Simulated assay, not measured.
Amino acid sequence: MIKFKNVNKIWPNGNIALQDINVEISDGEFVGIIGLSGAGKTTLIKTVNKMHPISDGDLIVTMKDDKGEDVEYNVSNLSGSKLRKFKSRIGLITQEYNNVQGETVLNNVLCARLTRMPWYRKIFTIYTKEDKRIALDALYKLGILDKAYTRAGSLSGGQQQRVALARAISQEAPIIIADEPVSALDPIFAAQVMSDFEKINKEQNITILINIHHVELALKYTTRIIGVREGKVVYDGPTSKVDKNVLIQIYGENYNEEDIA
């Protein structure tokens, strides 16, 4: 579970990014976060892994550890090794893919296993058979197993984003936050990647928070929408309940589907 309680984020220059956020996200939800550019969408999802520390309020993340036991984290209080371990349990996907272009797809995915290695294996980058099995299985689930020994830089944008998603799966993270993961893709690849998110959400019960500009994709694939406007949550509910009036509430009276998409 991810729980925002009276969360605010104020930048050093005094600009308010988030105002009085009160949201609870349960295990296994697929949440689309929508709103105009600058509304606070990216800030909202990046507070979850403390890339953007909150200014006040409480942000509590509860997830299972390797033993299957629930552990509660007060994100604001985390630092040092505890913060690094916490971040290793949250997958992060961005529009830049973050793949090493000269490395093979498999090596890019295997990088996710580094956080689970003892120091001596990290130094020499020694992966076990189990590490490789997990990485190859992730590639198989996303339909790109045949690209395992191909250089990442030779792949299409959609395939590269699948590599990034496979890396998050191999990280065995119960939560994935995705910041505009399809904004740089053409419509066909964007839909394929969103379908991949939907698949792993359903099959592996991974909680996914996705910040997305493409409203039509958010409405097609996610199960819950959080609408953000000027740092405030103005809609939080089932995707099925989002209509034109809700979208006007999120985007304003001048909402135009072609402009937003």
Results as ranks from 00 to 15, higher is better:
Thr125Leu: 14
Gly35Phe: 09
Gly38Arg: 10
Ile226Asn: 02
Ile177Lys: 11
Ser183Asn: 01
Glu216Val: 07
Thr125Ile: 10
Asn74Val: 05
Lys50Arg: 14
Ile260Gln: 11
Asp179Gln: 07
Ile10Cys: 11
Ala190Gly: 00
Ala112Leu: 08
Trp119Glu: 09
Leu36Asp: 10
Glu257Met: 15
Ile200Glu: 05
Asn108His: 08
Ile208Ala: 13
Lys3Val: 08
Ile226Glu: 02
Val233Asn: 12
Leu78Arg: 00
Ala138Val: 13
Lys199His: 15
Val228Lys: 02
Leu18Ile: 06
Ile208His: 10
Met1Phe: 08
Gly68Leu: 05
Lys232Tyr: 05
Gly102Asp: 11
Ile169Leu: 12
Tyr255Pro: 10
Met1Asp: 09
Leu106Phe: 03
Ser55Trp: 03
Ile134Thr: 14
Ser55Gln: 07
Ser154Trp: 08
Asn98Leu: 08
Glu24Cys: 05
Ser240Met: 04
Thr62His: 02
Lys3Asp: 09
Lys41Ser: 04
Arg162Ala: 08
Lys46His: 14
Asn15Ser: 13
Lys41Glu: 06
Pro12Ser: 13
Ile25Asp: 04
Asn77Phe: 00
Glu24Ile: 09
Gln171Val: 04
Trp119Arg: 07
Leu247Tyr: 06
Asp196Asn: 04
Asn108Gly: 04
Met194Ala: 00
Asn201Ala: 14
Lys64Ser: 03
Asp66Leu: 08
Glu258His: 14
Arg116Ala: 13
Gln160Met: 14
Val228Ala: 00
Ile25Met: 05
Ser26Ile: 02
Arg162Trp: 03
Ala218Tyr: 12
Asn107Leu: 05
Ala190Trp: 00
Asp196Leu: 01
Ile260Glu: 10
Thr115Glu: 10
Gln160Ser: 07
